[in-house]
Amino acid sequence: MKLNKKPMIIAAVSALAVSGTIFANSTYASDATKQLKAVYANIKVMYNNQAVTVDAAQEPFMINGTTYVPLRVLGDAVGKKVTWNNTDKAVSITDTQTQVPQSTVDALNAQIQSLQLQLTNANTQSTGKDTTISQLQAQVNDLNSQITSLKNQLADNSSSSGSVSNAMTKLQTALNNSYGDYRSTGASIELTGTQSAVKVSIRVNETSWNDTSSSSRRTLLQNIVDDIHDNTTFKNATISGTVYNKNSTKLMSFTVNNNNSVVIGSNVDLTTVQKNLNNDYGTYRNIKLSIELSNDNDEEIVFRVYANKSDWNLLTDNQGTSLMSSIAADIDAAYSNMGKKIYGFVYDSSNRSTILKRYN
């Protein structure tokens, strides 16, 4: 075969093997430069008896009888990541993410075929084999689920999982730079999850957080959600989050609805708050009261006080107002002063549609 010789000057060789004589006359290899003649002979690279695709810019060559193959070509062939650090003049070779071996998938497919054969044989036998058939079908279903899971894992591994992780890290840094000192709360934001589901953990100074208005808190959370969705990688992700104090005690949680709006939740049990109110105000100035709470949405809480009309009329207007204000203040405190809108009504217990007094 006629050799296609392409002479070239090589200042540094990034290849599979380098002759020790190239830099023999220099104290440091990095300081040496030598003219060498490279011979290109249409050299093929084979991996596991399969030809490796090599573009013209990375074609292997020979120098003084030694064959040189670019590291990146070999890295791509064997599933390794090769990068060049120009500052340190260093080549880095790292493992890529391990994928589920195809042999594992093939083995599970073989099991399914065997079980399906057993299932076919069982169906041809007496109806007394129903239990066996059900068990075999369950095994087939389970193995099919494993196959689906493994296929999904293979697909995930072949996608840019590293890119997602890098994107999340960069986004987290950007969020902390933008909102880390929001309203002097000392917010620290952490993102976890995947490209399709992002969880947000925010740790704040509890005192400053409680001093921040409900609208300001909502603005912070909405800005974080909007910034996440503005990122191309996470534009379709579902988002949920939790706010903690610096001791990791949960202060509140939030989700995002279909309109991309923040929905604030709470870890407060409404039933417990109602029970405590009845314990504290079940008898007020010798008047028997019954208190019920409801929250039709995450922004409002309504309390209803039931009292005998004639007994309630024994109270002055100021006494009634003071009672309802105290109930509202206790509800607000139970929800960590989150700024929920609180409404209240006093009803005649003998005619529950008659309103005796209102609070808003």
Rank of each mutant, 00 (worst) to 15 (best):
S126E: 08
S126W: 03
S126M: 03
S126Q: 08
T127L: 12
T127C: 02
G128W: 09
K129Y: 15
K129I: 07
K129L: 15
T131C: 06
T131A: 13
T131E: 09
T131I: 10
T132L: 13
I133F: 00
I133M: 06
S134R: 11
Q135L: 07
Q135W: 03
Q135N: 14
Q135D: 08
L136K: 00
L136Y: 04
L136T: 04
L136N: 01
L136M: 04
Q137L: 06
Q137G: 04
A138R: 07
A138D: 08
A138Q: 12
A138V: 04
Q139G: 02
V140T: 00
V140Q: 02
V140P: 05
N141M: 02
N141T: 12
N141W: 04
D142C: 01
L143H: 03
L143Q: 02
L143C: 06
L143P: 00
N144A: 04
N144V: 01
S145E: 04
Q146C: 00
Q146E: 07
I147A: 01
I147D: 02
T148V: 08
T148N: 12
T148E: 08
T148H: 07
S149G: 13
S149K: 14
S149F: 07
S149Y: 10
L150R: 06
L150A: 01
K151E: 14
K151V: 11
K151A: 12
K151R: 13
N152S: 15
Q153D: 14
L154T: 13
D156H: 10
D156M: 10
D156Y: 14
N157Y: 12
N157L: 09
N157V: 13
